[in-house]
């Protein structure tokens, strides 16, 4: 499938099967960018979340093109299905705070500072992208569930353990917040 993309980029007919795949790839990238744009620029929180969900869907598509279908599905299930919805749920449950809130003041430095920070981030990322020696790694395993399971519990078990610790901390934090004042 990856070779298909390369071929379509090299001037294959847009109406061939490869061209179709290329089109889907472009749609995927478009989803990521459009979703991110909506998520960052919209003034309505629910539209932001919808943009985020669209962006996550696009990322799932990108994972699929990277030959990691399991990660793609998990991206959909966890990020689109659970994370976005949990954020939406949190917004619904939270009381809307109108007016000035401390720490949210917009000064005349806000714009230039924000621009400077994002410019720096952009410069760093583009520098990284430009200087990296991009090479296609030999495909390791099939990227499916079985392979991921084997890798996670053998050579990459450290990641697995770290993830469990992160989850444990998250659960503890949730308990602390939820039980505050209830003893």
């Amino acid at each position: 499938m990856q070779s298909a993309i390369c071929q379509s980029a090299a001037g294959m007919s847009f109406f061939s099967a490869q061209g179709f795949v290329g089109l889907i790839f472009l749609v995927t990238i478009g989803l990521i960018i459009a979703g991110a744009f909506v998520a960052t620029t919209s003034t309505r929180l629910v539209r932001c979340i919808s943009g985020l969900a669209v962006c996550f869907t696009g990322v799932a598509g990108a994972y699929y093109f990277l030959l990691a279908p399991f990660v793609a599905m998990m991206q959909m299930l966890i990020y689109v299905g659970a994370v976005s919805i949990l954020i939406a749920f949190a917004i619904m449950m939270a009381t809307p705070e109108e007016g000035d809130t401390p720490g949210k003041k917009i000064t005349r430095f806000s714009g230039p500072l924000g621009f400077a920070v994002s410019a720096m981030a952009f410069a760093a990322l583009s520098l990284l992208a430009a200087t990296t020696d991009w090479q296609v790694f030999a495909r390791e395993g099939s990227g499916d569930m079985h392979h991921i399971g084997m890798v996670l519990l053998t050579s990459h078990s450290m990641v697995f353990e770290l993830v469990s610790i992160v989850l444990l901390v998250a659960i503890m934090g949730a308990l602390v917040i939820a039980r505050r004042g209830r003893d």
């Binding site: 998990m74 959909m76 299930l77 689109v80 919805i85 499916d144």
Partner: peptide, 16 residues
Amino acid sequence: ELSVLLIFALASIGMM
């Protein structure tokens, strides 16, 4: 290959 997962992933969009 992962059709079970795919169906559940899609079902979560329905919730949206």
